[in-house]
Design a binder for these strands. Structure first.
Lengths: 204, 204
DNA sequence: GTCTATAGGCAGATAGAC
DNA sequence: GTCTATCTGCCTATAGAC
């Protein structure tokens, strides 16, 4: 077993770079920070950063990959956790709330705003993130409807998108108010709205 | 009456700067464009831009002020237009759709994402924009509920926020897909959801 | 893995001529 | 109102020593 030393362990710096960059992107945007910001915080030089990530685009790709991996692991944990669909949706919204509490946005929500300025490989990863969220949510919604626990109009996919839009929008708008309660209230109402079906003959 | 000349009329350049900057902010973000981008498109130098706007912060303030003014004029026009609350809400969502069709985001939605990097005066204007949207929407919702046309739980203010969150989030996420239909579908569902009351005794 | 040194470019901004 | 010229600073990135 390796002893602790004052030197960094292999791969540790890379992880720390990702941690700092992730926080900077989520709070300031991909165009709102520089290698110098990371280097200063890590107390190394920008030249050293290029050893770990060839360029900002590669760093960006790695950020999304790690973020998505961690996020979908959390979704798998939710799958194995609460038994009701409502509780699973609450846990899902809780993931967003945790992010907002750190005065951050969803990484891919932020990158969606900056979408037109992103390098191509990053763009594809952002869209995939939303797609996979939709798939997971639609599955939960489908199950909840099957058991009669949930009740909503349209397809599970449509309802899933509404949840994503609502939570991403609530994060975006609530953050400037510095008020996590704003988000919580919105998440509650969003989940509650999935428990009532509207009359099917709603006039156009 | 002044004759047309090949020279720009007084104030015309200022307006054109705002037009170009507005488009750039809405598509690329405030940190995603530079004075050079505007200057190149206008075929003047960056030095000339500083004659019209002392700095990027002043340009940013002017952008929000003009955007908000135009937006709330549009809301006043809606007030005088369609007679039903549902139609007014559709027209409201239509304002967002028009923006998205130009591959843009709501100016203040974009600035909300970049909030932590904005100069102070811009921050206040962004929050005010959302506040005023909420006021207008709450008024429409209140009226619609009074006539029995609309039906929703909670206060008009709460429902108004849900609309803002839903539409801002739908714009944010739909844009990378390049699919305005995604937004329309979400807007429709959002408005439809205001026509049914959920059971008041929803279990916590 | 991290450094020094440096390149080349672009950022926002200013002085002063016309 | 627009220009040329210039400034200072920051940006990403690279070469090469340790």
């Amino acid at each position: 077993m390796p002893r602790m030393t004052t030197k960094q362990q292999v791969g540790d710096t890379r992880r720390r770079v990702l941690d700092i960059a992730e926080r900077l992107v989520q709070s300031r945007g991909f165009n709102g920070f520089s290698y110098a910001d990371i280097a200063a915080e890590l107390k190394i030089t920008t030249a050293s950063l290029h050893y770990h990530f060839a360029g900002k685009a590669e760093l960006g790709r790695a950020l999304i990959a790690r973020y998505a991996e961690r996020f979908f692991e959390a979704l798998t944990a939710i799958d194995a956790g609460p038994s009701t669909a409502r509780e699973k949706l609450r846990a899902y919204a809780g993931l967003y709330a945790d992010v907002l509490r750190g005065h951050r946005l969803c990484l891919c929500g932020m990158l969606a705003a900056e979408y037109h300025t992103l390098p191509d490989p990053m763009r594809e990863s952002v869209v995939s993130f939303f797609d996979e969220n939709e798939v997971w949510l639609a599955k939960i919604l489908q199950q909840g409807r099957a058991t009669g626990e949930l009740d909503f109009n349209g397809t599970p996919e449509e309802a899933a998108r509404m949840i994503i839009y609502g939570l991403e929008g609530a994060m975006l708008v609530a953050r400037p108010y510095g008020d996590v309660a704003r988000f919580h209230s919105a998440a509650e109402q969003l989940i509650d709205s999935l428990t009532t079906r509207r009359p099917s003959g709603t006039p156009k």
